[in-house]
Every structure is written in C-alpha cells, then in structure tokens.
Amino acid sequence: MRVLAAMSGGVDSAVAAARMAEAGHDVTGVHLALSRNPQSYRSGARGCCTIEDSRDARRAADVIGIPFYVWDLAERFHADVVEDFVSEYAAGRTPNPCLRCNEKVKFSAVLERALALGFDAVATGHYARIVDTPDGARELHRAVDPAKDQSYVLGVLTQAQLAHAFFPLGDTVKTEVREEAERRGLSVAAKPDSHDICFIADGNTAGFLGAQLGEAPGDIVDAQGNKLGEHSGTHGFTIGQRKGLKIGTPAADGKPRFVLDISPVDRTVTVGSREELAVSELTASNPRWCGPAPADSVVHATAQLRAHGDEVPVVATVQGNHVQVTFAEPTSAVAPGQAVVLYDGTRVIGSATIDSVQRVSATV
C-alpha cells in the first residue's frame, strides 16, 4: 500500500512513519509547512512548523530510508484555521484550532492531494485507534494511553476519511514511543512535545488576538447587570475563565468569579459564581459522524467537551443538522464554539459544534 506519512518533526510522527515502513508499506514522508513566516527555532515545547522542525522531519525520513517532501499549505492553513480562530473569538466563541486543522487541512487538503497523487492512505502520529468491523466499516476509538488520547480532536473525521487513515501509535503509551525512537536512532527521541497553539509560539493568546482585532473596550458586569470593571476586548476572555479578570470589587461572599457570558455586540463580559457556571444541556450544530449517523434520534452516550476533559453521561437528541445534549448531572465551563464529541465506550460516535447552553441557574 502506498502511504503518505505526515511528519511534523516530532517523535510521534517519526515513529509512526517508521512503523508503516517496517510493516512493508511504500511510505513517503511529507512535512506540512503551515506558517507564512516560520521561525528558525522553537522555544521549548511552544509552537511548531519551524525551520528546525522541517529539518528534524527530513533527518528522521533519512534514517527510516523513505523519500521526503515539504508541502506548502500555509495559505490554506491561514484561511481555514487561523482566520477561523480569530473570527470565532471575535464572535464571543471559543474554537479548537487543532480540531479545525484536522478537519480542514490534515484530513481534507492533505488526504485529497495524497489520493490525487496515487497514495492509498495518510498516516499520522495521533494517539487514537482505528478498528475494522466485520462489515468492512472503520471505527475511531480512543488510544490505549488515556493521557495522550487524541480522539477528541479527530472526532470531525468522516467514515470516508477514516477509510484512508492510519494511526500507528494508538496501541502504544508515550514512554514506549520515545524508547522505540531511541532504538531506531531517531534524533527526535527526546524532543519536547508541542503543547500550545502552534501559530501562537509565545503562548500569549490574548496578545495574539489583541494584535489581530485591536482594542474594543467594554464593561465587566455581574448577572444582575451591575458594572464591576472594564476590559479592553471581549476576545481576551473564555467561558469559565477565573484568572486575569482584574475586578477591583470582591464578591459579596468572597469567592472567586468566573466568566459566564461573552457578548461582543455590546462589548459586555458577564461574570458570576462557580455555581452559576453549571449547565444542564446544550445545543450543537453541523454534526460530523465517524460512521453512519445514529439509527435512533435519541442516543445514550458519554460526551467530552474539551481536548483533555473528562467524559460525562448524556442523552443526545439528533434532529437533522442539530444535536441537543442533556447532561445526567450539571457540568461547568461549556463554551459556544467548542466541540462536543460523543462516545459509545471507547468508540467515537461523532462530534458537533456547540451553539448555545442552558444554565441551571436560569431554570431555578
């Protein structure tokens, strides 16, 4: 099988490519140049797509003994991921750029190009598993290593995309991957993982958004509309945020306040207690199913709301292009723009983008 191995320059993608080659596939490595102005070096575990990363990927390909190319997808990445990220924050929503990158770039642009060039599949270093069913379908499942599981950000993949995908690391824990890289003589064996948003290398998301959107001062208010302070832009806040609110007046009960709502139209940020964050249900749209759409309109499942969040029991009601998710127990810090990913055990059912939430405090 002809396989295109996406090689970021990190240890995971290098080992994934090596495993595919060792399994007898005809493997070609490709590094995706996603930055318009790539820096020469990373800063520790921040950022990616630097010149150093592309060189690390090339060296790994040489050790593995596979052809290697660099594909410039900077414009596609900027349009589909960076601009989407900025516009979502400008609208008061909280997007997940890694999820959008998987949907629009790695398993859309790259897979489409790979198939057009005669490749059969794309392999990446994501921690997730694909399980082939007796009827010939492919299911996306959680990785064996729960600490590294990335099925949440892959929940946007369709059955057609899974049919041409390989995740060779899904049955391995991270320590074993590094040990294997060392045995294979890959120089990236001890390279730090990238933990932050790749196009914000200094980790200062608020500063990045401020430079893109400018200042738009407004008020910070409580749930009753009382002004508590001021801010320089709603894009500097996310639902559930506690730190950095800069409210001079303490709460009457002395407890911390959290961001409850963000309204870019009137430039208002509403804050309240932890209890006021509790959500009983949400409405999401544009579902993407990792296999056939659920046969029943009502699905008992578990849901994950953040990349490293816990699963919670839910009942999901599917109505065309919308999904209503009701929580068995109230949950907190649910933000419009995030993805809700539904699971049946370890299997990913699909995902949808959160549009609105119903807070417990609004119903009592």
Rank of each mutant, 00 (worst) to 15 (best):
G236S: 14
G236C: 13
G236Y: 10
G236L: 14
F237D: 01
F237G: 01
F237P: 01
F237L: 01
T238C: 01
T238L: 01
T238K: 13
G240C: 05
G240P: 04
G240I: 07
G240E: 08
G240T: 08
G240A: 09
Q241P: 03
Q241H: 07
Q241G: 03
Q241T: 06
R242Q: 13
R242D: 00
R242K: 10
R242N: 00
K243Y: 05
K243F: 07
K243Q: 12
G244R: 12
G244F: 10
L245K: 09
L245Y: 06
L245W: 05
L245M: 05
L245I: 06
K246A: 12
K246Y: 09
K246C: 02
K246S: 11
K246D: 13
G248M: 07
G248S: 11
G248Q: 09
G248A: 12
T249Q: 14
T249G: 00
T249M: 11
P250F: 05
P250W: 08
P250G: 06
P250A: 04
P250I: 04
P250S: 07
P250H: 08
A251F: 00
A251W: 01
A252S: 14
A252H: 11
A252G: 01
A252W: 12
A252V: 14
A252N: 12
D253F: 11
D253I: 12
D253Q: 12
D253S: 12
D253T: 12
G254S: 08
G254L: 06
G254C: 07
P256L: 06
P256E: 04
P256D: 03
P256Q: 05
R257C: 00
R257N: 00
R257H: 00
R257S: 02
F258V: 04
F258Y: 15
F258R: 10
F258N: 03
V259A: 09
V259K: 11
V259D: 09
V259G: 10
V259W: 08
L260G: 02
L260R: 14
D261P: 00
D261K: 14
D261A: 13
D261N: 13
I262H: 08
I262Y: 10
I262G: 03
I262F: 08
I262C: 05
S263N: 15
S263A: 13
P264G: 06
P264R: 10
V265L: 13
V265F: 09
V265Q: 15
V265S: 14
V265M: 10
V265H: 14
D266E: 13
D266G: 09
D266C: 09
D266V: 13
D266M: 08
D266H: 13
D266L: 07
D266W: 07
R267F: 00
R267S: 09
R267T: 07
R267P: 02
T268L: 02
T268M: 04
V269N: 03
V269G: 02
V269Q: 03
T270Q: 11
T270C: 04
V271D: 06
V271L: 07
V271F: 05
V271C: 08
G272S: 03
G272Q: 05
G272T: 04
G272N: 04
G272R: 07
S273T: 15
S273H: 10
R274L: 13
R274F: 12
R274G: 10
R274N: 10
R274M: 11
E275D: 15
E275S: 14
E275T: 15
E275K: 15
E275W: 12
